[in-house]
């Protein structure tokens, strides 16, 4: 098929940036979206133009490196997948496709379609861990049974890949889904409960400090999340936060 691509080009963080049109032909429906961009780039290089910079790595939907706002949606039109799992069979011959970076104040653009998501790193560093050393003397893994339901819910929350689609989808650019996924994972497991109060407060404070917006419960994040992280995690974060803030100090 033949397509028109309208792609955001921006030389660096200080450049103003603009949409640029490209024509691409002979696209096979079995190609992945990023393979289509590979072909475009190959063509640009032979024409001595600069290829379009985009983030990508595993190309199987798990590393969270790829991003892209495609036709107004993070990771494009299909549900439950990342951009690298999107295939061209989701488009028709003659389509015009708009390709932009994830837009959020807390995700400054580095170049073209690449954004800086280090704010997510700092949120994780503020409390996304259990304080246990690698002593090799921790108790046996089966010493504390964990109800299967809790373990499964913790796992579902832990499958967040940190891609930032939730932020890009949210009209407030809120990072609540991302933050709540990690808070929930640990809140649901006995190993994480010890530090639960401190964790939720620290992570929320860091999230606010990074300039992410507030959650107004529209659910756009859940709808666009490639891993189907549930809004229930945000509710759990709020409960954990209230519990922590109203806790009686001993």
């Amino acid at each position: 098929m033949n397509l028109t691509l309208k792609i955001w080009r921006q030389k660096n963080a200080n450049d103003k940036g603009s949409m640029v049109d490209y024509q691409i032909s002979d696209v096979s429906p079995d190609m992945s979206f990023l393979e289509m961009l590979d072909v475009l780039n190959e063509d640009l290089i032979t024409k001595d133009e600069e290829p379009v910079a985009f983030d990508h790595d595993c190309r199987e939907g798990i590393c969270g490196m790829c991003s892209l706002h495609i036709n107004g949606e993070p990771h494009g039109p299909d549900k439950g997948i990342t951009t690298c799992q999107l295939h061209m069979r989701s488009f028709k011959n003659g389509d015009t496709i708009y390709i932009e970076p994830f837009r959020a104040k807390a995700f400054p653009i580095i170049k073209d379609l690449i954004v800086d998501r280090s704010a997510f790193e700092r949120i994780q560093q503020s409390g996304g861990y259990v304080s246990v050393n690698t002593s090799g003397n921790t108790q046996d893994a089966n010493a504390i049974p964990v109800p299967k339901e809790d373990a499964d819910m913790a796992f579902d929350a832990a499958t967040c890949i940190g891609c930032g689609a939730c932020v890009a989808a949210c009209k407030n650019s809120s990072a609540m889904l991302f933050t709540s996924a990690k808070v929930s994972q640990f809140a649901l497991l006995p190993q994480g409960k010890v530090e639960a109060k401190k964790r939720v407060q620290d992570m929320v404070a860091q999230m606010d400090a990074e300039g992410f917006g507030n959650c107004s419960n529209t659910g756009a994040c859940e709808a666009e999340c490639p891993k189907g992280i549930s809004l229930e995690n945000i509710a759990r974060l709020n409960r954990e936060l209230i519990k922590a803030k109203t806790a009686v100090k001993h």
């Binding site: 921790t138 108790q139 089966n142 373990a151 994480g192």
Partner: peptide, 25 residues
């Protein structure tokens, strides 16, 4: 020899391994 320790360590870190209905790994 150290393989068993890895599982203990990861569980202590909050890695959500699959469990059966009795709550064990």
């Amino acid at each position: 020899e150290v393989s068993a320790n890895i599982i203990d360590q990861c569980v202590a870190q909050g890695v959500p391994f699959a469990r059966d209905y009795g709550g064990l790994l």
